[in-house]
């Protein structure tokens, strides 16, 4: 193998490695949704210091109160593992929430608003805050 070929191969391998450690592919539409949520969060609390995947994970897994009895948690329908498919109460498959498995998550503002609007009310009995939404998307984008 010539030296230049070797270098090309090594570069290619490094690029592949890089792609593996980076979180799921960036999506400008998703970034814009997160930016809007960050603005809202900052408006509500000037001390807002950014979204947190850890908080998002805890929120996703938590048993909440105040919502409808059949759906106390995100995991009631989305399964404990966000890289796996979930199932609606009527038995229909729900595609995984993790962006790595389902790149079309959180990149259409109408869909994001519709589902947070419905499911926050079903699970928590109220609207979600901008911080909760941003944490949730941040967690699942890294997952």
């Amino acid at each position: 193998m010539s030296n230049s070929r070797k270098i090309a191969l090594i570069s290619l391998l490094s690029l592949t490695n890089l792609a593996m450690v980076l979180p799921a592919a960036a999506d400008p539409a998703r970034d814009a949704i997160l930016a809007t949520l960050a603005e809202e969060a900052k408006k509500a609390d000037p001390a807002f210091g950014g979204f947190s995947a850890e908080r998002g994970q805890a929120f996703f897994a938590a048993k909440h109160t105040g919502g409808k009895p059949d759906t106390p948690s995100c995991t009631s329908c989305h399964s404990q593992d966000p890289t796996a498919a979930g199932e609606t109460r009527a038995g229909k498959r729900i595609e995984p929430m993790a962006v790595s498995k389902n790149p079309s998550r959180f990149n259409k503002v109408e869909e994001v608003n519709k589902w947070f609007g419905r499911n926050c009310n079903s699970v928590l009995g109220r609207e979600c805050t901008a911080v909760e939404k941003g944490d949730f998307i941040t967690y699942l984008s890294a997952k």
Partner: peptide
């Protein structure tokens, strides 16, 4: 639709 068989299914 906000009370749709135990779930909120609200639409625009």
């Amino acid at each position: 639709l906000a009370n749709h068989f135990g779930e909120n299914a609200a639409l625009d």
